[in-house]
Design a protein around this nucleic acid. Sequence first.
RNA 1: CGGGAAGUAGCUCAGCUUGGUAGAGCGUUCGUUUCGGGUGCGAAAGGCCGCAGGUUCAAAUCCUGUCUUCCCGACCA
Length: 482
Amino acid sequence: MSGAETQEKDLDQGESLLAKIALEAELADYSPVKGCMVIRPYGYAIWEQIQSSLDKMIKETGHQNAYFPLFIPESFLQKEAKHVEGFAPECAVVSYAGGKELEEKLVVRPTSETIINYMFSKWIQSYRDLPVLINQWANIVRWEMRTRLFLRTTEFLWQEGHTAHATREEAEVETKKMLGVYKTLSEEYLAIPIIDGIKTETQRFAGAVTTYCIEGLMKDGKSLQMGTSHYLGQNFARAFDTKFQDQNGQLQHVHQTSWGVSTRLIGAIIMTHSDEKGLRLPPKIAPIQIIVVPIYKEQAEKEMVLKKCKELEETLKNDFRIKTDDRDQYSPGWKFNHWEIKGVPIRINLGPKDISSNVVEIVRRDTKEKLKNVPQQDLRQYLLKLSTEIQENLFRQANDFLIKNTFTVKNEKEFAEKINSGGYLICFWCEKTQCEEKLKQKTKATIRCIPFKLPVDQNQEEGYCISCNQKAKQQVIFAKAY
RNA sequence: CGGGAAGUAGCUCAGCUUGGUAGAGCGUUCGUUUCGGGUGCGAAAGGCCGCAGGUUCAAAUCCUGUCUUCCCGACCA
């Protein structure tokens, strides 16, 4: 066991909350290469839960999984002007392989639009071939200056959807549909409330026409982009000549979308739900939903208690991911703390006293509340209800936090006062990039999105730009971001 | 990539100023005692002092370079 000493103290709420929890809860560890991380089994199990929930939704919306290669010819990246401009600085490039210099350098994919378009242009001939709805689970590499576990690593795992459509309308519907899937994933599975909206030009994906996003507010008051969905227009289709013959025999470029979420979501979970005891996982994505801690003194008791634990597991295993911590070398008290750090939503303490009176003791991780003498009959129902309650409570707490930290500001003075304490600022913006830039220079805050819906009620239709004070119709969300 | 801090036992750290046989607590192993919120006692094992050079009779300690982490800026999911 690592970090036993620091585990004894409550975890600090400092800047290093993220790294601390990631390491202590054994989600990840550092690799010898800068900015890279090892995702440890428990962290990977969380990723698998996220994956299986999302993969199901992706398939339900008609997409198929496929796999495109890691290496992309350097020339591909250069075909789309904005795309190359955006990604060139952060690309890792292989120039030497097989014992010699390569004729054409290979880019380690920072995203797969180019290689996928190359393939699409081969596969798409007719309107009858459309739409093409593809998703891939993959790793990608982006050479970042400053890295943080889960939130920004050099290599990370993600899912990238790529679709091609006959019309602009269809592609736009697709873009928003998948953003909706991300919203569902975040709010209903990860228990993280988000603000969904449109990115401004400066924050838009390199090569996209429109970028939609979901943004979450982290415990430290910073905003985290948790997922993006792009309407790519015909930009890549033109660059790669991805054309189809329509019903009138006319050749047209396809309209495309791409969308992705990554292992960053694990960072979001940490930075949204952790408390002084460690991680708190929403039941829907917790690799272990119920941990059973047996309590016993001598051997006879041990056998009796462990047998009862197995029985419990048997009756509950169809409804829950349940595990008994039957390790002999750790005391019950030690186990309590251990599983709290790891964020297991429900703990069942089971000892001789409980068994003799046919009850269990249940401790919920979200509130730390101890529920004594819960009858063993109807336990399944009780736990199902509790599980739902914990899921909802985590969302409610995060949502309250978001609302409490969202402010409407009317002028630059108010803006400057509020922005340093973190949270979201709602204000009018005249839609000029220079106004956005000016505020970024002064305050480090950026427009996270033009929200579809404001998180707090706001009736005004019109106001004055937070920066230049001219009439403005657009209300935007500002925040400091990761 | 700039500014600051750090890297010594599995973990947290002391030792470095002023060079001279590698330290503590926790954890681990064995024994014993315990087990309903991180048990007590006894013994033992465990270290290319991040890496590479240099200075020196002698380097964890001084010098140079380099790698990694953390914090702060410029860039991003």
